[in-house]
């Protein structure tokens, strides 16, 4: 159990450290201000930390009250997958808002091919 918690926590912290880089890379081709991008990156990371802590409490509760057998599926299906979903969700909201903003600026649509 201690090994599992150790692995879980290290993975989670590593993902918190990775999220800014993943989003920074994904935001790079988008024509938006750096500060707007930074705000979204910080929000995503903050969400990741809060969500990760809540999940940690829920998982420990499940393992204690039910069975340790859930450790593998919880780790494989929920930890990295869940983190990925909200990273893409933040990205998608950013792109959606940016598209709306750019619609008002004709100069941004100078070419397509």
């Amino acid at each position: 159990m201690l090994d599992y918690i150790d692995l879980y926590m290290k993975t989670l912290v590593s993902i918190w450290l990775l999220i800014p880089w993943v989003l920074l890379t994904a935001f790079l081709p988008l024509p938006a201000k750096f500060w707007n991008k930074l705000i979204f990156i910080l929000l995503a990371d903050l969400y990741g930390i809060i969500f990760g802590c809540i999940r940690y409490i829920v998982y420990i509760f499940i393992f204690r009250e039910f069975s340790y057998i859930f450790m593998a599926p919880v780790f494989f299906m929920l930890v990295p997958f869940f983190d990925f979903v909200f990273v893409v969700a933040f990205y998608s909201v950013f792109v959606s808002n940016l598209a709306l903003k750019l619609k008002k600026d004709d100069s941004k649509w100078g070419w397509l091919y």
Partner: peptide, 13 residues
């Protein structure tokens, strides 16, 4: 974004 889509982007997750 290039296509000028807006709501479609929200389906990415």
């Amino acid at each position: 974004l290039l296509d000028g889509g807006h709501m479609r982007a929200r389906l990415l997750p």
